[in-house]
Amino acid sequence: MPETEFEPADQAAAFDPVATARRILRTAKSGSLATVAADHGAPFASLVVVACDTDGTPLLLLSDLAVHTRNIQAEPRASLLLCAQDIADPMQDARVSINGALAACADERIRRRFLARHPEAEGYSGFKDFSFYRLEVRDAHLVAGFGRIHTVAASGLLLDLAGAEALMAAEPGIVEHMNDDHADALALYATKLLGAPDGNWRITGCDPEGIDLVGEAGVRRMVFDEPANDAQAVRLRLVALAKRARERGIQRKTL
């Protein structure tokens, strides 16, 4: 359970800090990375683009020439600030600071998931001075408006992938199949279930909790009604959600 630092009783029942922190993490495309300056020890903040590993661990693609990379080579501890999308008043909407240590990672899954979220980075991702990094999470600090301030443990922020090995192995095929053969269903998920505008929506990742969708309007997260740990379970969830989306579209037309 997350530690509640200040949460009025009348708000606590309806507000889920873990779900809110996970949603921000899964839908952020960029954030502010705070590192410790190697030359003078003061905080150093920089803009980075962000993706997620299957369990939600933040992923970064950094150049060895960047100041923040030189900083983490000397001191890997860092904090990543992510904010909710489409913010009219930044101080009134949710944001989460994810604290931990950055570690370089050459896993092909990391590369695939990052470039699915940021295909524009493929052209330079193979340069010798660029490397992928995982932010090994210690905890997260969520501020979601007045009176909603929580510390979320890593065990709450990240998914437990025990038993989901089959899904992780099948994920590339699921993503390719949905994007190639079911673009209509992806558009239904985004517009009818998630309230997103029409556009060219594509799936970038799949995990036991849900799928990530990316379009011109940003990133959307669709959470399954129940966890899915293999390809067949994901298929059943997606078919049911497509049916629900079509029914919702018909209902709105008849109003």
Score class of each variant (00 low, 15 high):
I110M: 02
I110F: 08
F114M: 07
F114S: 05
L115Y: 07
R117F: 03
R117G: 04
H118D: 00
H118W: 05
P119V: 05
E120P: 00
A121K: 03
A121C: 10
G123M: 04
S125P: 02
F127M: 11
F127Y: 05
K128S: 15
F132N: 00
F132Y: 09
E136L: 15
E136T: 11
V137G: 11
R138F: 09
D139M: 06
D139Q: 13
D139T: 02
A140D: 02
L142E: 10
L142M: 07
L142T: 04
G145Q: 14
I149S: 09
I149K: 06
H150E: 09
T151F: 08
T151K: 12
V152C: 10
V152M: 03
S155R: 14
G156R: 08
G156E: 10
L157A: 03
L159A: 12
D160V: 08
L161P: 04
A162H: 14
A164S: 15
A166E: 14
A166F: 06
L167F: 07
L167M: 02
M168Q: 15
M168C: 15
A169S: 03
A170M: 03
P172Q: 08
G173Q: 13
G173I: 04
H177F: 12
D180G: 02
D180K: 14
D180A: 15
D181G: 05
D181P: 03
D181K: 15
H182G: 01
H182S: 07
H182M: 07
A183Y: 03
A183N: 04
D184K: 13
L186C: 11
L188Q: 13
L188R: 14
Y189I: 12
Y189L: 11
Y189C: 10
Y189N: 08
T191K: 12
T191E: 14
K192C: 07
L193D: 00
G195E: 09
A196F: 02
A196C: 07
D198C: 03
D198T: 11
D198I: 00
N200R: 12
R202M: 12
G205M: 13
G205N: 13
D207N: 15
P208D: 01
P208Q: 05
E209Y: 03
I211N: 05
D212I: 09
D212Y: 03
V214T: 13
V214S: 08
V214P: 04
V214Y: 09
G215K: 10
E216V: 10
A217M: 03
G218S: 07
V219C: 13
R220W: 09
R220Y: 06
D225P: 01
P227I: 12
A228F: 03
N229L: 15
D230K: 01
A231D: 08
A231Y: 07
Q232K: 07
A233V: 01
A233S: 14
V234Y: 07
V234M: 00
R237K: 11
R237D: 01
L238I: 04
L238W: 10
L238S: 05
V239D: 12
V239K: 13
A240R: 04
L241D: 13
L241W: 13
R244S: 12
R244K: 15
A245S: 06
